[in-house]
Every structure is written in C-alpha cells, then in structure tokens.
C-alpha cells in the first residue's frame, strides 16, 4: 500500500510539513516494496487551489493514505470521495525517518 507523507525537504532527516497543499515535498512510500519516491510540490507557491491540485497529484500515484499536519477545507470531501485516508499528525518535530519506522512497526 502506498502512503503519501508531506515533507519539508528531500531527505529522510527532514521534518514533517505541517501544511498539505503547500508543502515542499511529497514522499510516496510503498509499505510492501519499501520503495520511496520524492516529488517536489509544483503547487507550493500558487495563489489558490493548491490543495485540490495536490490531491490530484497524490491520487495519480495511487496513494491510499496521506500523513500531514493539517488539511484544508476543500480537501476533506475530495479525499472522502476518492477513498483516501487522512492521518493528521500534530508533531512538527517528527522526521520522515521516524514516521516510516512507525509505519513499519
């Protein structure tokens, strides 16, 4: 199963980005093959509609879960109809490595 994680940078030691639509990087982690893909967010600096555009990006990679600090108001209904699970983690100090370790437990 693929899990999307929002990150502040493109390495495992970077921290979890607290925003979803305007995060710096998306990390698509595959829990079965342990493979991961770093995608720079193209919607980082757009004026409006960053959330729905990011949802499209995640959905095109077939991720079934998204881990982020916060989700905007336009996102919830979109993700619900796409059956993607939202996981809200309010811990900005957690690194991507720690989150992946948690997923593997």
């Amino acid at each position: 199963m693929k899990v999307a994680i929002t990150s502040t940078g493109n390495s495992l030691d970077n921290k979890l980005d607290q925003r979803f639509g305007r995060c710096s990087y998306f990390i698509i982690y595959d829990t079965e093959t342990k493979g991961m893909e770093f995608i720079p967010n193209p919607n980082k600096d757009v004026q409006a509609g960053a959330g729905p555009a990011s949802v499209q990006l995640i959905a095109s990679r077939n991720a079934q879960k998204i881990i982020s600090g916060e989700f905007g108001i336009k996102i919830k209904s979109l993700l619900d109809s796409l059956k993607i699970q939202m996981i809200v983690l309010k811990e900005p100090e957690k690194t991507i490595r720690e989150i992946i370790n948690m997923l593997n437990q």
Binding site: L79, D80, I84, Q85, L89
Partner: peptide, 10 residues
C-alpha cells in the same frame, strides 16, 4: 500512543 488523528473513508 502516537497522538495522531485519522479518518475512515471506507
């Protein structure tokens, strides 16, 4: 245990 929130879309 990890103090996260999540939803159940299915």
């Amino acid at each position: 245990s990890c103090r996260c929130y999540f939803n159940n879309p299915d």
